[in-house]
Design a protein around this nucleic acid. Structure first.
Lengths: 113, 113
DNA sequence: ACAGCTACCTTGTAATGCAAGGTAGTGTGT
DNA sequence: ACACACTACCTTGCATTACAAGGTAGCTGT
């Protein structure tokens, strides 16, 4: 069920990581794993989508500790998409909290939405 | 894409509406539609799930303006589930915002486009 | 040579939301 | 009587996405 909540947010999270700095899947997974459970199998197909949408481009870099790394960089439209997603995310959260706040009168005002 | 964000939250929203007061699908949809786009086809299967999980029970009531209404009531475990979901929701939102905030060290840079 | 790590990638399954469509009772206008 | 609109129920098929499990390959240390 926690899985379902994530739908649609992982793209945004990955874009946010890339906004910070270029990265490759193995590292992205490691970063995200600090804060949430995440699996490689989720990210690879996702990266293909990001590429298809032209939100990222890639380049290869040699690694001294394993196979070459495939770095991903945000494009201009990737950055724009991230901003748009943040906006959607914020209004979505507000929307849900409004519904919860409305129905949740039985829990006398936990915290505000 | 907005659709994907909703995954996993609609159950919680419906439970929240029912926590407010007993209701039937047609009305629930109307209520939720005030705040978000939502379709009947989504809710009926969802109600079956809620019933299967024994989070709601139903009773029929005659209506003076159409077919009988099938009201849904929260069970005790339904209320418990709603509380649990709210908890998950809050920590999920915090989690995502943390990732966004981190990648968004350029949050100074939120000149929201 | 082998184990273990880095790093890439694919396939199949499950969960969920939605559009489109179908059934039926009640009231209103012609 | 007939058509239409509104309430109210419900189902089927599709698309999207996350995940588990599995596969390939380079590099390092013993």
């Amino acid at each position: 069920m926690k899985t379902q909540l994530r739908k649609g947010t992982l793209e945004m999270c990955v874009l946010a990581v890339l906004a910070h700095q270029d990265s490759y899947v193995y590292e992205i997974v490691g970063r995200l794993a600090e804060r949430m459970e995440i699996s490689e199998g989720t990210i690879y197909p996702l990266m293909r989508r990001l590429q298809a949408d032209e939100w990222v481009t890639t380049y290869l870099t040699e690694s001294s500790s394993g196979p070459a790394r495939k770095y991903y960089t945000l494009t201009a439209s990737g950055r724009a998409a991230l901003l748009a997603m943040r906006g959607e995310w914020d209004s979505f959260v507000a929307e849900i909290n409004a519904v919860l706040g409305e129905g949740g009168a039985d829990k006398e005002n936990t915290h505000e939405a």
